[in-house]
Design a protein around this nucleic acid. Sequence first.
RNA 1: GGUCUCGUGGCCGAGUGGCUUAGGCACAGCUCUGCAAAAGCUGCUACAGCGGUUCGAAUCCGCUCGAGACCUCCA
Length: 504
Amino acid sequence: MSNSHSLKIYNSLSGKKEEFVPLEEGHVGMYVCGPTVYSDVHLGNCRTFVSFDIIYRYLRQKGYVVRYVRNITDVGHLTDDGEDRMAKGAKVARLEPMEVAQKYTVGFHELMQIFNTLPPSIEPRATGHIPEQIDMVQDIFSRGYAYERNGSVYFDTIKFAKENPGVYGQLSGRVIEDLLVETRDNLKSQDEKNHPSDFAIWMKARKEDLMVWKSPWSVGFPGWHLECSAMSTKYLGKTFDIHGGGNDLKFPHHENEVAQNVGACGCAPARYWLHTNMLLLNSRKMSKSEGNTISPFELFTGNSPFVSKGYDPMVVKFFMLMAHYRSTLDISDDALLAAEKGYRKIMETNRQLQAIAVNAADFDGSETDTDRKILSLIDDVFAGMDDDFNTAMAIASLNELGSYINKYVHQQIAANEIAPWVIERMKTVFSTVIFDIFGLRDETESGGDSGTMEGLMDLILAMRAKARENKDWAASDMIRDALAAVGIQIKDGKEGTRWEKIDV
RNA sequence: GGUCUCGUGGCCGAGUGGCUUAGGCACAGCUCUGCAAAAGCUGCUACAGCGGUUCGAAUCCGCUCGAGACCUCCA
């Protein structure tokens, strides 16, 4: 399903929307910073990965062959006390570091499946790319942007900034002069670094560090930031199309990443930088370290003081899609409730649409205003997606289409108002957008799980229909109420009774 | 303190110079219905405050107030 719009993407480097033109026609290389697997992923991470999943899916939908690389960081992050995070987790839990990493990697994958996201093309691990990272340190060294102190290697940001004007700070909007000024305040720092903005690209291990490797400088481990530079280069090339991640990674992580790549090869890594905005709880950023967080499973089960009930993962996903990925999104019970209704409605509309059997005899062959309006709305759906992946706009247009579908189904507009091929086109658009691009699942479908359930419900509804025929309202209502008590909602309609499982 | 973003109707949330009444939820009326639910239709016209630019601003500029993010690990 293609369309005529050109795709526009907001590029954090330039601060504006730009037309997307890949380096190599028909192909897109996209790198997204994945999770650090030293604890459970939280909902904020999910939003970012869901956003990029939709970007990935949409690029594919537009016909691009996409190589989507999303890493797993299982080494390299330092805690405040300088201890490797993985090692810290290991000591607390008395597990092998790799055991900790494995546990949370598996959990992360499960969650991504629950949200129905596609796996990336390549999911490299930092620990699996130590040689590549050592090579990159050497490249940076040979180009003069690194210095060694007691077995650790640091990136020389000041020298780099002077020799590469306009590069360091471009992404995050930082000013080099400010960096230079900072020096004075930090002179007394006992740090090994020449300058506070310098950062480690190789760290010499202390005796308590568990995850260590040999290098030309010391036995130690690579610095944070370096893994992404090394792995994106390895799998996507020195320069590639899209680099994504959460807003909070912009500085210092992404800024330093750019510096490392440019420092190592003289060329900029990504051409388009995309940053997703934060998911808020209580109007504050969700954060593991600050404890302001609700876990995905607490949200699914309702086991949290922040929500009145559990929400289906697809409802949570739909809730995320109702906002643009670059806006902050404040999670609240009311908003989730509204999203749940909206999600059910759009799924119901789709089912009604797919069930329409067009009768060619109803059609007189002319194109009506309604046809034109519908085609225009379909165009709006894709125009929204082409405008920096604006899912909120796409959903709005889908809802407007839904209004036509409902009027048609309820015979509030004449059958010959909409041409059969337009109906068919709507069917394709709905299923493509909802299932292929948004990656939603229809969890509201009647039955679904087993034929037994279907059969039982058919029986029960037949009994109720019989009771109603005999005007035995007591029996009829008893069945209705009893079903409601176990979470099954009865929907009486013109053509019979449908049912749906709802949360109690 | 420095850098930056945002402040939209009861709630969530798009939109960035003049036609979008965006959309969703809630609410009200109506249709349908044995009643109800569900479903459908219709209605509900906002853009923090002040000043400026402009023929015209929610949309551009300035100031004020408020919220948040980054500057330290964080999607």
